[in-house]
Design a protein around this nucleic acid. Structure first.
Lengths: 132, 132
DNA sequence: CCTTGACCTTCCAGCAACTGGAACCCCCAT
DNA sequence: ATGGGGGTTCCAGTTGCTGGAAGGTCAAGG
């Protein structure tokens, strides 16, 4: 299977597949003409990585998860620990964003949004540190 | 005021201030010895950008907001529109993360996390597309 | 006067994870 | 042979910094 078929089957863009090969996430064979040739196992790996990425796992954790997937002697505890760490990352990012969101929503609510220049948003961004 | 004082006063790292100068966000004067010399207005700008960044505004929007801040003839509607766009971005990112979080939490809940290899997390990542 | 150390300067590299584009090869149909 | 739709490589750019090397500047101490 050539790269565009692999891409179609996995939803992973061809450019991204080449990148994954470059960083040794996948190792498709080559045909006589130099084209990449994807086996079912390669497709499976690409699907795996695509899904893991969509859950926000960084590449290095995808690599680790792939290795565990291949490892018949793994313990599910190892996998779970990685997933829990990732969940923690996501929760932290959500918390950050929520704080931003709240501040921003507050400022937006205070801004008239009309033709006048007075703007609590700019005042808050440019203001001195609250000094009574 | 030299760069380390400017950094201390604004909380923006010196490296970051140099970067901001490189991309023309700030334009501190230079002393005779070549050192950057920060005026109160420069400090103010750095504070502004620091706060805008902490609300997640990308650099280009910080630039626009700074220009509006300087523009006495601005309308608060312009500022509000930018802030609302940013709020939309944040909401979209939160929505993405929440979806990830939910899927991941579900998988984690289904995983025994013991010494056995059976793992719903890996099964979900590596599995075929649900086929009955 | 010389040294030490804390500043400051510039420039170059690298991070994450791709993405776009140029320049070129391959293969099949007409 | 020619046209089009594959494929290949390599280089550059994205966002927003961050680290580090090599070297200039300055104030204090001996």
């Amino acid at each position: 299977m050539n790269i565009s078929d692999a891409s179609a089957r996995t939803g992973v863009p061809a450019k991204t597949i080449r990148y994954y090969e470059e960083i040794d996430l996948v190792r498709p064979k080559r045909s006589a003409n130099g084209y990449r040739s994807f086996s079912d196992a390669d497709i499976h790996k690409l699907n795996f990585v695509g899904r893991a990425r969509s859950l926000g796992f960084p590449i290095e954790q995808c690599r680790t998860l792939l290795a565990l997937w291949d490892d018949e002697a793994r313990s599910s505890a190892e996998v779970k620990a990685i997933a829990e760490a990732q969940l923690g990352e996501i929760d932290a990012r959500i918390a950050d964003l929520r704080e931003m969101r709240e501040t921003l929503a507050h400022l937006i609510g205070a801004c008239a949004g009309d033709q006048r220049p007075d703007c609590p948003i700019l005042e808050s961004l440019g203001g001195e540190i609250a000094s009574g």
